[in-house]
Amino acid sequence: MAANFEYYKIFYYVAKYQNFTLAAKALLSSQPSVSRCMQALETELGCRLFVRTKRGVSLTAEGEQLYKYVAPACEQIFKGEENIGGTLGYQNGSVYIGVTETALHCFLLEKLSSFHRQYPGVRLKLTSGTTPNTLADLKAGKTDLAVVTTPIREDSHFRVTLVKECQDILAGGSNYSYLKGKKVPLSEVQQYPFVSLAENTMTYALYKEFYASHGLILKPDIELATADLMVPVIRQGLGVGFIPRELVKKELEEGSIVEIEIEEKIEGRHICMVEDRQKPLSVAARHLIRLLKGKEPA
Results as ranks from 00 to 15, higher is better:
185 P>E: 03
147 V>T: 09
19 N>S: 11
152 I>Y: 02
184 V>F: 11
243 I>M: 06
32 P>Y: 04
251 E>R: 00
117 R>K: 12
60 T>S: 08
246 E>W: 12
174 S>E: 13
35 S>D: 03
240 V>S: 00
6 E>I: 12
295 K>M: 10
280 P>D: 05
249 K>D: 11
19 N>E: 14
195 V>D: 00
71 A>P: 01
68 K>I: 01
230 M>G: 02
30 S>W: 12
39 Q>E: 15
174 S>F: 06
274 V>P: 13
25 K>W: 03
189 V>M: 15
240 V>K: 03
197 L>R: 07
139 K>A: 10
101 E>L: 01
21 T>Y: 12
272 C>F: 10
53 T>D: 07
18 Q>N: 13
126 L>P: 05
77 I>W: 13
271 I>S: 05
169 I>Q: 08
76 Q>V: 01
217 I>F: 03
111 K>E: 15
159 R>F: 15
95 V>G: 11
186 L>C: 13
237 G>Y: 00
141 G>C: 08
216 L>D: 04
121 G>K: 03
65 Q>M: 04
41 L>W: 06
286 R>S: 13
98 G>W: 02
9 K>Y: 15
210 F>Q: 03
8 Y>L: 15
187 S>F: 03
277 R>L: 11
112 L>H: 13
2 A>L: 10
70 V>R: 01
160 V>D: 15
226 T>Y: 13
245 R>E: 15
130 T>P: 03
60 T>L: 11
294 G>I: 09
106 C>S: 15
289 I>V: 12
259 E>S: 04
